[in-house]
Amino acid sequence: MNGRFLLADNLENLIRRTALFGILGIGAGFVIITGGIDLSIGSVVALAGCMLPWLLAVHHWPASAVVPLLLGIALCIGLAHGLLITKLRLQPFVVTLCGLLLYRGTARGIAGDQTQGFGVGFESLRYLAVGTPFSIPVPFLSWISEGRFSPYAVHPFTGVRTRLDPITWIDIPMPFLLFLAIAVAASIFLNRTIYGRYLMALGRNEQAARYSGVDTDRMTILAYVLCSVLSCFGGMLFALEVNSAQPVDFGNFYELYAIAAAVLGGFSLRGGEGAVMGVVLGTALMQVLRNAINMLGVPTQIEFAVIGAVILSGVIADELVRRYAAARRKVVGA
């Protein structure tokens, strides 16, 4: 294990990135559970991330007006996706692919292809992305990070031994708390409410759900609205974290990270299966993979190859599990 992986700064950054991408993953999960797909997540992230500093720093709008406005725009985006898919019977792939291009182009047009930044202000708002409300103690972490369980660090050139503190304090970033709140709310929604059961039923068999009295159109629209709103919220947090947004590449391929995290976490691309805890674990694994690529000195160009392999592995595993379950049912029925 690379000793830098267990450094406090690296773990804090890993937790923050897991939280930010996890919010997008939960949004993607809502759509995937209905059997749909949303390819516009990254472009919604870019639109929200560029419009936030553009309205706050350039046009001097108050944050109390900008944040609800952007969330309202995201709600309308999700509503448009849902209506096109349910009323016009367009394929989700086509609708959201067009959205990917449309929202990216809108962000670039609004910003004039110029980087939008917050400057030195808006500290209270930026606290949502970069704040650390509290820290937790982790015993012996610094000892393990040396590659062996030792209370001493040895300088690689001079050989001087330095005693390490037995307790390492890890800052818990604010985005992680927001992510936990969203994850808990999403889990309760999916597992403890009738609407969550409706989404599951819709993904398993839309026609059967409709015959059972479920308003499948309304549930599909709800899934796309939730995905767009969470993408918008995540986009604002991403922009606040880096203090700026470049419309050309901000949020590029973030939909892939979101979909990969959901699939890796157990969401079936066929719909009807998935758990929020799986998204949490899937997102964490994706970020650990990205971090490992950097730590091990592997060329970052293969990062997307890793993501593609993860998605493909999830699809293959889903198909094998489906076939195994079908074979078991056949044996039991016989």
Rank of each mutant, 00 (worst) to 15 (best):
A74E: 07
C76Y: 09
A74M: 12
A74T: 07
V67M: 09
M51L: 15
V58G: 00
I73F: 13
A63Y: 08
P62Y: 12
L69P: 00
I77P: 04
S64Q: 14
L75I: 06
A65R: 10
V58N: 11
M51H: 01
A63R: 05
P62W: 11
G49R: 08
C76A: 15
C76V: 15
S64P: 00
P68Q: 07
W61C: 09
L75D: 00
V67S: 06
M51T: 13
G78Y: 09
A63K: 06
G49Y: 05
M51Q: 04
A74L: 07
L52W: 03
I77N: 07
A57C: 01
H60N: 11
G49H: 05
S64R: 12
L55Y: 07
W61Q: 13
L56G: 03
G72Q: 02
G78D: 06
P53L: 06
W61M: 13
H59R: 15
L55I: 08
C76L: 15
L69D: 00
I73S: 04
H59A: 11
P53I: 05
I77D: 04
P53W: 04
V66R: 03
C76D: 01
I73G: 02
V58L: 12
L75T: 14
V67A: 05
W54I: 07
G72K: 03
G78W: 11
I77F: 12
L79R: 07
A74F: 06
P68N: 09
A65C: 05
P53V: 05
L55D: 01
L56Y: 08
L70N: 03
W61H: 12
V67H: 04
P68D: 09
H60F: 12
W54D: 02
G78R: 11
L70S: 04
G78V: 11
A57I: 04
W61L: 15
W54G: 00
L56W: 08
A57Y: 08
P53Q: 03
A65M: 13
I77M: 13
L55F: 14
L69S: 10
H59N: 12
L75W: 14
G78Q: 09
L69C: 11
W61N: 02
P53D: 01
A74C: 15
L52P: 00
